[in-house]
Amino acid sequence: MITIKNLQARVEEKEILKGINLQINAGEIHAIMGPNGSGKSTLASVLAGKEGYDVTGGEVTFEGKELLDLDPEERAREGLFLAFQYPVEIPGVSNTNFMKTAVNEVRKAKGEEPYSAGEFLKLLKEKAALVGLNPEYLSRYVNDGFSGGEKKRNEIFQLAMLNPKFSILDETDSGLDIDALKIVADGVNKIRNKHNAFLVITHYQRLLNYIIPDFVHVMYDGRIVKSGGKELALKLEEKGYDWIKELEVTA
């Protein structure tokens, strides 16, 4: 589904990604773990097309297309989704209006007719119920005054609405208590299927108790330094990241 080859990127003059290689296929869940500052969130931002990053080398193919040539909205329309670490508050724009605009823009790009008001409302209610979003939040302004947990749940709700092929969850677990974490994970588990794929970026292993990855990658200093199965996450939890730093030195 997505192939990342030797991806290098910098912010201003600082090199952050130093050659990332990653292949993710449909039906797979990959986790990227790593200490703060290893470049995990930069990878997410570069894949989603955020401004302010210079890609200095490598390439990314997404469903056969050169991902890095596309604008952020084109990436989203191709089926890429980023669940933000810090979802943005947008006072004045209701969640419903936001989603209606987004869903219909994606449909338009695919040459499909916009949803009728009735069809859209049905989808909205169905997906809100799927991720356990209180319908009251639909009429509220986007993330405005939401708690940390509500914001993250709203990200998963948007994911459910847009039904992307490939989703990146950027530290979705940060700042969540265990109940909120379970709810978010539960939403992802309901949405995952053999046609879509996920990249779960996290600092901690605990999210991976609820979203079980097929592969775990460890990132350090802008590179993936170790890959393995889900047991790798447990090893990291047990031994900490110092073990990885030593690995980097000896490698």
Partner: peptide, 27 residues
């Protein structure tokens, strides 16, 4: 940040601007 957030959901730059300007005015 608001612009990028809207665009990352498939909303074009032009539409994103309209949404934000409309929100600004609504108050």
């Amino acid at each position: 940040n608001s612009m990028f957030y809207l665009q990352s959901r498939g909303i074009s730059k032009v539409e994103a601007k309209i949404l934000l300007m409309n929100a600004f005015s609504s108050e």
